[in-house]
Structure formats: C-alpha cells, structure tokens
C-alpha cells in the first residue's frame, strides 16, 4: 500500500514539475470551447442548449491529448521495467498511474469546465450538476484511457491510434454525463438515475482499466 502511495506521489510530483501536460490540456480545452461560439454565431439560446455537450466533448478531447504521457516517459527511461520487478503487481502500478493522471489532469479539467460554461451561456441552474457529473465521469476517462495508452506505448506517433481506440470507450460516459446534465435543468427528478449510472461506469472502469492496461503493458515489456 505504501508502494502505491509512493508511486502516486512521484507521478503527481512529476506532473507538477513537468507542468506542460496539464497546461496543454487546459489550454486546448479553453481554445476549443472559446472557438465554438465564434463558429456558431451569437445565438445565446442555441449556445446554452448545446453547452453541456460542447463542454463534455471538449473535455474528452483535452484529456485524450494528455493520455500518452501516462506510461510513455516511464517506458522511455526504463522505469517501467524496474516498476515491473517491484513487489507491486502491474495492475496496481497501472491503477496508481491512472489515479495520478485523474488527479493531475481530470480534476483540473473538471474544475475549469464551469468557468468555460460562462462562455457558452450555460444555464446557471446547471452549474452544480456540471461540476458533479464531470468529477464523477472523469475517472472513467483516465482509467479507460490508460488501456489505450498502454496499447499504443511502442507506436510512434500513436496519438491518432490512441484516439481511435479510446474515444469509443468514452461513449457511455458521454451519454450519461449529458443526460444527467439535461435532467438537472429540465426535470430535476431524473438527475439521480443518470448520475448513478455515470458513477457506476467510472467505478467499473477503475476495476477493468488497470487489469486491461497491465495485460497490455506485459506485452509491451516483452
């Protein structure tokens, strides 16, 4: 257990020191959301109707940008091999690194979303739901994304392949994230079920993601 905390602590420290990954993801999120109103025109009703969808899709794309870094640097500098000879099972290594990715990228993206909601004239009543759904949904983004990151580890410029592999896995999160959001503004009673399913998807991916990622890492280590 202390090994796991140690690994997460190191990854978070590296995320802070390197800085670039988070900056790029947040910057991309901001630029995509800021450009859409320019393309769609100043129709405030239209914008507030599609705001939730835009924020979710932009968040998924921004998170996708930062995914290759989950395992890439550890693979390049040989750390992954040494991590594999440690007492910690590779599944927990993958889980720890996914969790560090969520803390260092998923949470900041989720917290930036309400700020960007202002640009899209998001309904004020939807803000609590926006933060809640994004915090509950982003673990799935990190833990499922780790599978793709592990699979494309040795692929040169594997970013596009990573997107093809991982984005379909995000569809359930997207559907229930959006449905929880629209329920929050239109029929508050329906928020609970959608939100519960969204959280369940995240919990399932916390279990499935590391197991699949570890299997992929074992192949990559060969």
């Amino acid at each position: 257990m202390s090994d796991l905390m140690n690994l997460i602590g190191r990854d978070l420290r590296l995320a802070v020191r390197e800085g670039g990954a988070l900056g790029t993801a947040l910057g991309f999120f901001l630029v995509v959301v800021a450009m859409l109103p320019l393309g769609l025109g100043p129709d405030l009703n239209l914008l507030s109707r599609i705001a939730a969808g835009i924020l979710w899709i932009a968040l998924l794309l921004a998170a996708l940008l930062s995914l290759p870094r989950v395992f890439e640097s550890d693979h390049e500098d040989g750390s992954l091999e040494v991590l594999a000879t440690g007492g910690l099972p590779l599944e927990l290594v993958a889980a720890g690194k996914s969790l560090a990715h969520w803390i260092s990228t998923g949470i900041p993206l989720a917290l930036l979303a309400p700020v960007l909601g202002i640009l899209l004239n998001l309904d004020l009543a939807a803000y609590p739901a926006l933060i809640a759904t994004m915090l509950a949904g982003t673990p799935a983004v990190s833990f499922l994304g780790a599978i793709g990151a592990a699979l494309t580890l040795k692929t040169r410029r594997g970013g596009l392949l990573l997107a093809l592999l991982v984005l379909p896995l995000y569809i359930p999160t997207l559907i229930f994230g959006i449905s929880a959001m629209s329920a929050a503004t239109m029929s508050p009673g329906a928020f609970g079920p959608s939100f519960a399913i969204l959280a369940a998807i995240s919990l399932a991916s916390v279990v499935v993601g590391p197991i699949a990622a570890a299997a992929a890492l074992r192949i990559q280590l060969q």
Binding site: E18, D77, G78, E81
Partner: peptide
C-alpha cells in the same frame, strides 16, 4: 537495463 530509470525532472 540499457536505460537508467532516472527521471530528468527529479
């Protein structure tokens, strides 16, 4: 191995 498992930023 051939790589040192040393992080440049630490």
């Amino acid at each position: 191995g051939h790589a040192n498992a040393i992080k440049a930023h630490l």
